[in-house]
Design a binder for these strands. Structure first.
Length: 308
DNA sequence: CTTTCGCCCTGAGTGC
DNA sequence: TGCACTCAGGGCGAAA
């Protein structure tokens, strides 16, 4: 499932093709994929058609394309979403939920296909709000090196989403202070997009393994030293996955050109139950937590004392 | 405010 | 061959 590295690969693949392009038309095959779109602000296709796409930007797992209308096309891939660049007449695959036709100055006419099996992902056209701190709203590659208005604006539904750990404007101290304050399990905190964005179940387990922290340890019990180690581990697993072109556990994720971004061999904990911990050889276990699965090494990641 | 919980959603895989 | 069942989990609104 797409987390920050996968979404970034999609953004980076999309950006050169869509930047400066004009939306020619929209085809919607599955209305539920637009359930996040507020129709009272205008019909999805009407708000898109004719607009010029200025860039492709990302914060955490949220991806948006600022439009010259002052709004943005917002995409979240959910569990199984993909954004694929196709030729305008490419055959319609069964799971295709929407197709956006654009005229690209660099690549001619293109189809941007939104494919999503489980329909947890969504597309919407949203209003923008200022970040307030003057820093770029998200990462948008070279296009972000501009003073265009969209640079410091983000779609309304993303306003409450924290910056991600690869964002230069990410506030380490604030995050560490929040960990020290919260009484919830540390993995819950890692997955809380209001605290730090971009982390999903896979990279949470990988970072916790790398930092040797048990997922259910109260976040305020981890302490500053290990919390810093954990944050560093998150960044390391992200950077490594980015270097490998994005990771996905089940090959649902396909990058913008349709090639698989599957690099399961690089996973140390997630999905590795029954296999030896690469560090100590103890067999990795899988446990139910938060209605999802957590993977850990029973020896490297012991639950400290009494809790839960 | 903080935290937890239930809901959404369906193709692939499994077992009988 | 077919059918019932299970599994995957991000984000959000409601509730405690």
């Amino acid at each position: 499932m797409p987390e920050l590295p996968e979404v970034e690969v999609v953004r980076a693949g999309l950006a050169p093709a869509v930047t400066g392009s004009r939306v020619l038309g929209v085809e919607v095959f599955e209305p539920r994929s637009l359930r996040r779109h507020d129709p009272t602000s205008g019909a999805f296709d009407e708000l898109l058609t004719g607009a010029r796409i200025e860039a492709a930007a990302r914060r955490g797992k949220f991806l948006w394309m600022p439009l010259d209308t002052g709004r943005a096309l917002l995409a979240h891939l959910g569990m199984s979403g993909q954004l694929l660049l196709r030729t305008p007449d490419a055959p319609l695959v069964p799971l295709l939920r929407a197709r956006i036709h654009v005229a690209s100055p660099a690549h001619g006419d293109l189809a941007v296909d939104f494919v999503d099996q489980r329909i947890f992902g969504s597309l919407a056209v949203e209003r923008m709000v200022e970040t307030g701190d003057g820093a770029p709203a998200g990462f948008s590659g070279e296009a972000g090196e501009t003073d265009a208005p969209w640079r410091t604006r983000l779609p309304v539904p993303v306003a409450h989403i924290a910056r991600d750990p690869l964002d230069p404007a990410f506030d380490d101290r604030r995050f560490l202070a929040a960990l020290a304050t919260r009484r919830t399990g540390v993995k819950r905190a890692l997955l809380d997009q209001n605290l730090v964005s971009g982390i999903g179940n896979i990279y949470a387990d990988e970072a916790l393994w790398a930092a040797r922290v048990h997922y259910d340890e109260p976040s305020n019990a981890v302490g500053p030293r290990r919390s810093r180690r954990l944050l560093a581990a998150v960044r390391e697993v992200f950077e490594r996955a980015l270097a490998e072109g994005g990771t996905s556990f089940d090959a649902q994720y396909v990058n913008v050109n349709g090639a698989s971004g599957y690099f399961a061999h690089s996973l140390n904990a997630y999905g590795q139950q029954g296999r030896p911990c690469p560090r100590c050889g103890t067999l990795i276990v899988r446990e139910q937590f938060m209605n999802r699965s957590s993977h850990r090494c029973p020896r490297c990641q012991r639950r400290p004392r009494a809790s839960g």
